[in-house]
Amino acid sequence: VTLFVALYDYEARTEDDLSFHKGEKFQILNSSEGDWWEARSLTTGETGYIPSNYAAPV
Rank of each mutant, 00 (worst) to 15 (best):
T2F: 11
A55P: 02
V5I: 13
G34A: 13
L7Y: 03
A55H: 04
G48D: 01
D9E: 05
S41N: 14
L29N: 05
E24S: 04
T2C: 14
T44C: 04
T2R: 13
W36G: 03
I50L: 04
A6E: 00
G23A: 02
F26G: 02
Y10T: 00
F20T: 02
Y49G: 02
S19F: 03
S52Y: 10
L29W: 07
T14G: 15
A56Q: 10
N53C: 15
D17C: 14
Y54M: 10
Y10E: 00
E11G: 05
E33H: 14
G48S: 01
S19R: 04
L29G: 03
E46I: 11
E46G: 07
T44L: 02
F26I: 06
Y10P: 00
V5C: 06
P51Q: 05
I28L: 07
Q27T: 10
Y49K: 14
E24D: 15
V1N: 13
K25E: 09
A55F: 15
R13I: 11
A39Q: 00
S31I: 13
I50T: 00
T14A: 12
F20N: 01
A39P: 00
F20L: 05
E11I: 14
T44A: 01
D17I: 11
F4P: 00
P51M: 06
K25C: 12
W36R: 15
K22L: 06
G45T: 03
E24G: 02
A12W: 02
K22Y: 05
R40V: 14
D16T: 14
I28G: 00
K22V: 10
Y54C: 09
D17W: 13
G23V: 01
T47A: 07
L42H: 05
R13T: 13
S19V: 03
Q27A: 10
S19G: 07
R40E: 07
W36I: 07
L42V: 10
D9C: 09
G48Y: 04
L7N: 03
Y54S: 15
V58Q: 08
P57M: 08
L42G: 03
P51F: 06
T43Q: 09
Y8G: 05
G34I: 10
N53P: 06
P57E: 08
T14N: 14
T47V: 15
F4N: 01
R40Q: 11
Y8Q: 08
Y54F: 11
F20M: 10
V58T: 08
L18W: 05
A6V: 04
D16R: 15
E33D: 15
T47C: 10
E15L: 11
Y54K: 04
E46W: 08
G45R: 03
I50D: 01
D17Q: 15
T43I: 10
P57I: 08
S19D: 04
L18V: 04
I50F: 04
I28C: 05
R13Y: 07
E11A: 10
T43W: 11
A6H: 01
L18G: 01
P51K: 06
V1D: 13
V1Q: 13
E38V: 15
Y10S: 02
L18Y: 05
Y54E: 02
S52E: 04
T2Y: 12
S41F: 04
W37C: 03
E15D: 13
V5M: 08
P51T: 02
A55D: 02
R13A: 11
A12M: 03
H21I: 12
W37H: 03
L42Q: 07
G48M: 02
V1W: 14
L3R: 04
S52I: 11
W37Q: 03
I50V: 06
Y8N: 06
S52N: 06
F26S: 00
V58C: 10
Y54P: 02
N53V: 09
I50M: 04
V58Y: 13
V1T: 13
E33I: 11
D16W: 15
E33V: 11
A12I: 01
Y49W: 14
N30G: 10
E24F: 03
T14E: 08
K22D: 01
A6F: 01
V5A: 05
F26C: 04
Y8E: 07
I28Y: 02
T47H: 08
E38A: 07
A56E: 11
T2I: 14
Y49R: 15
Q27P: 00
L29T: 06
L42C: 15
D17N: 10
D9S: 08
Y10C: 04
G45L: 07
G45H: 06
D35I: 10
E11V: 14
D35N: 09
T47M: 09
A6R: 00
A6L: 03
G48L: 03
Y49F: 13
D16Y: 15
S19I: 02
F26M: 06
V1R: 10
Y54G: 08
L7H: 03
E38S: 07
A39W: 01
G34R: 12
I50S: 00
A39R: 00
L42P: 03
N30I: 07
S32E: 11
A56G: 08
R40I: 14
Q27F: 14
W36K: 11
Y49Q: 09
E24T: 08
